[in-house]
Amino acid sequence: MQILPRHYVFLGLFLLIGITMALDISVDVKVSPYTKKMHAYIDSLPEGSTLIISFDHEASSLPEIRPIALAMLRHSFQKNFKLIGVSLYPEGTLIGYRLMKNIAKEYDKTYGDDFVYLGFRPQYIAAILAMGESIESTYPQDYLGNDYNSIPMLSNIQNYDDIEAVISIADGSLTTHWIEYGGQFNIKILGAVTAAMVTTYDPYLSSNQMTAMIGGLRGAAEYEKLLGMKGGGSRGMLAQSAAHLYIIFLVILGNIFYFRSRKKGGKS
C-alpha cells in the first residue's frame, strides 16, 4: 500500500468536509449585491406573472444546482407565479420535473393551473429561437403527454411576449444562448448558475443583457437567507468556508516549499 503526498491532501479534505458537515452548524452569510439584485427583481414582478424555468444542467452538478433551483422555485411559488418548466439538456429533464413537482406540493400548487412541465428539446439554439416564435409549435405536448391546448395556464401563452422572464438554471454555458438568442425577443434573462460559471456571465450582467444572477451554493445560501428559510445552501456553508481556507493553506504551503527549494539553489 503506497501512500503518496496527494493522498494526504485528499484525506485532509475528506476529513475536513466530513467533520464540518457532521457538526451540522448553519453559518450566517452576508448577502452579496448580486443575490440581492436577483431577489429584488423576482420580488418586484407582479403576482400571477408567467416565468419559464429552464433546467439547463446535467446530473453531475446536481449537488450544487439543487439548492439553487429549490430557492428559485420556492420564491416563484411564494409569489404565485405561473411556472413553465423546460429543459435543454436531457439530464435536466427528469430532475426539473421532480423538483417542480415536489416544491409545488409544498405550496399546494396544481399542475396545469399553476405550473406545467414541457420537457426536453434538443439543439438549444433552435429550441430557444423556436419558442420565441411559438411555444405551442415547439412543444405540441407537455412532458406528461397532454396537448398544449388542453392545459389551462397555457391558453394565453403564445411566445416570449407573454412571458415575464426566463430563469436559466445552468451548470455550463447554456445561459449564454438564452441571453444571445432569447435576448433577440427582448425577454429578461435571469441566471441561476454554478459558481464556476459566474465569471463567464459577468460581462452580460455588466451590459444588462442578463438582468440578474446568483451563483453556486453560496448564492443559494444567501437566497435562502433572504427568503427566511434554511436549506442545502446554508447547511453547507461551514464546510464551504473550511474548504476555502484549506485550499488557501495548501497554496501557501506549496509556495513555501517552492521558495525554500529555490533558495537552496534548485529551480524546481
Binding site: 503526498p5 496527494r6 491532501v9 485528499f10 485532509g12 479534505l13 475528506f14 446535467e58 446530473a59 453531475s60 452538478s61 446536481l62 449537488p63 439530464e91 474548504a243 484549506y246 485550499i247 495548501l250 497554496v251 504551503l253 506549496g254 509556495n255 517552492y258
Partner: peptide
C-alpha cells in the same frame, strides 16, 4: 455522475498544493 464530478474537488486541492506557484 455527481460523485465523479465531486472527485474534481480533490484534484483541485492537489493542484493548488503542487502547481499554484
Amino acid at each position: 455522475a455527481s460523485t465523479v464530478f465531486a472527485l474534481l474537488a480533490f484534484f483541485v486541492a492537489s493542484a493548488s498544493f503542487r502547481g499554484f506557484r
